[in-house]
Amino acid sequence: MSAQRAALLGGLLCTAPVVVWAAGVIALDDGMQGARLADGAAGLWLAQALCLGVLLPGCVTLWSSREFASGVLGFVLFPLPVLVLAWLMGVLPVSALLRGPVVLAGGAVVVAAAVMALCRWLPAPARAAAVLTLQAGLGTATLMWREAWLAWTGL
């Protein structure tokens, strides 16, 4: 699968559940939608970060750097229209529109660099185990320290 197609698929899988849930919140219109939609934005970024942390290490070596860049950019920008709507609804500060994708893209670059380093310095038999360990560690860290890195997004 190409990086672009993977980005679109990943973006859809992360964003669609949040959008369906947000549509329900909007349709419910109970006066609490602002706080709930802010939680939805946090959930969206958490899902994207987990995708990047768990799935990206296994894919880095499959793509060229150009493909990787467009894939990561497409993936982190995929929910942008939803986030712009959230900003128009007064749910997100304007800074979060910029900081969220930047934090995710920065994280993706760090993960890619780590995978590349592992591949360069480790012998072939140990690479798979190292990448698996990295995936598990990144997934756990993303969940454990979500409040810390979500704060970087401006939420």
């Binding site: 672009q4 197609r5 973006g11 859809l12 497409g74 993936f75 920008l77 942008l80 229209p81 712009v84």
Partner: peptide
């Protein structure tokens, strides 16, 4: 996005940016 996934994945960056601009 589904159409792009099936037919034209190259618009992966352009599609969300244009949709966001339209919303604005």
């Amino acid at each position: 996005a589904l159409l792009a996934l099936l037919r034209a994945p190259r618009v992966v960056v352009m599609l969300p940016v244009l949709a966001a601009l339209l919303a604005l």
